[in-house]
Simulated assay, not measured.
Amino acid sequence: MTSGDLPPLAAVRICYENLTGSCVKTPYSPGPRLLLCAVFGLGAVLAVCGNLLVMISILHFKRLHSPANFLLAFLAGADFLVGVTVMPFSMVRSMESCWYFGQTYCTLHSCFEGSFCYASIYHLCFISLDRYIAITDPLVYPTRFTASVSGLCIAFSWLLSVVYTFSLLGTGANEAGLEDLVSALTCVGGCQIAVNQSRVLVNFLLFFIPTLVMIMVYSKIFLIAKQQARNIERMSNETARSSDSYKDRVAKRERKAAKTLGFAVTAFLISWLPYFIDSVIDAFLGFVTPTYMYEILVWVAYYNSAMNPLIYAFFYPWFRKAIKLIVTGKLLRENSSTINLYSG
């Protein structure tokens, strides 16, 4: 190839024109760029607004103050923070193939991403255990899963997630043994976080163990719910005592809540499992995942933060009523916090 065959240097676009060692910039053409902007932007807006509505609903309306709903509120908090601190910056990175927010926030961005993911899965795990207790013994449940127990579950979820993720990425322990690779990948305008094989296995176990617990618990829940449904059907033509009738109504409500949260768990697994599997494969095969595939997996995972409020809106009548009160401004009326969202 002669020098005349070489592409002109000006044809190569870089993130920072005036800096040496800048990353190569490969932005999308206007059509795909507009589509990606709409998809990414919609996810961020849904994650922020939807989860904010969940938190406001549970924290404002007193009838929604329950240990189980507090878990839901803090789960929504994790998803809300993904929409605020992670998705907007990832949106720019995905569309521009450049990181314009500095190396310090690159590390923080990855810490936030990991912390809120783990916080979500441990909240979901505790919620599944809460539903199991509610289904198996609905009359004793209020004395077993109290506000203090819920608080301990919330504190454990956040402390484990934040302390582990920040200690891993903040100290650089994730890059141990990968110094040459990290040095080769480092350029101005890039934000690549490499995780070595031992740490990626720990990451996967922290994801897999609560996932396994949830699968086992929900399997038992649906078996029990199926048995309860048969029992209620068998007793439908018989005269039941009032206490039995009350127990059946409570059990029916708890089964519906368990079904709703079962959808939330399934959505979480569909969103995050491919990402975690790829991270393990990538670490052992030398980080061979193409950039575009990585971005797809990441955004599928991010979209989980936008899905939970949609699930609640579809299955929870009280959430739909709360949204209506909030958007119509009735939330600002005196004594609005005492409205019973469970009625009619």
Rank of each mutant, 00 (worst) to 15 (best):
Y342P: 04
F145T: 00
Y246V: 12
V250L: 14
S97F: 07
R241M: 12
S279N: 00
C106H: 02
A283L: 00
F145Y: 06
Y312S: 09
I221E: 05
K256Y: 13
T291G: 06
Y312A: 13
S120W: 00
V12E: 15
A38R: 11
S343W: 06
K256E: 14
Y105R: 10
V250E: 08
D130N: 13
A78P: 00
L168Q: 07
Y342G: 13
F156R: 12
D79G: 07
Y141D: 05
L64K: 06
Y292F: 03
I232S: 02
G114Q: 05
Y28F: 11
G43M: 03
S337E: 14
G4A: 09
Y122F: 11
E17I: 01
R199F: 05
I209Q: 07
L159E: 14
Y246A: 07
F101A: 07
L53W: 02
L53T: 04
I323Y: 01
T289P: 04
L205M: 10
F284Y: 14
P7K: 15
V195H: 00
T171G: 10
Y122N: 03
C106V: 08
E175Q: 09
M307V: 15
A251N: 09
M95K: 05
S120I: 00
Y100K: 01
P7V: 13
V82I: 10
A240Q: 14
E17C: 01
H65M: 11
D79K: 08
W318I: 13
Y316T: 15
S242M: 12
L152C: 15
V280C: 04
A119K: 00
F207Y: 14
L205R: 04
L341N: 06
W272E: 00
K247N: 08
V48W: 00
R33I: 05
G83C: 01
C111Q: 12
I193E: 07
T328Q: 09
I277L: 12
F319G: 04
A194L: 09
W158Q: 11
L52Q: 04
L178A: 05
S198M: 03
S245Q: 11
E175F: 01
Y132K: 05
F208G: 01
A147N: 10
C37L: 12
Y246C: 08
L160P: 13
V45C: 09
I209E: 10
K247M: 11
F101S: 03
L9F: 02
F74R: 03
T328C: 05
Q228C: 08
G31L: 15
P88T: 07
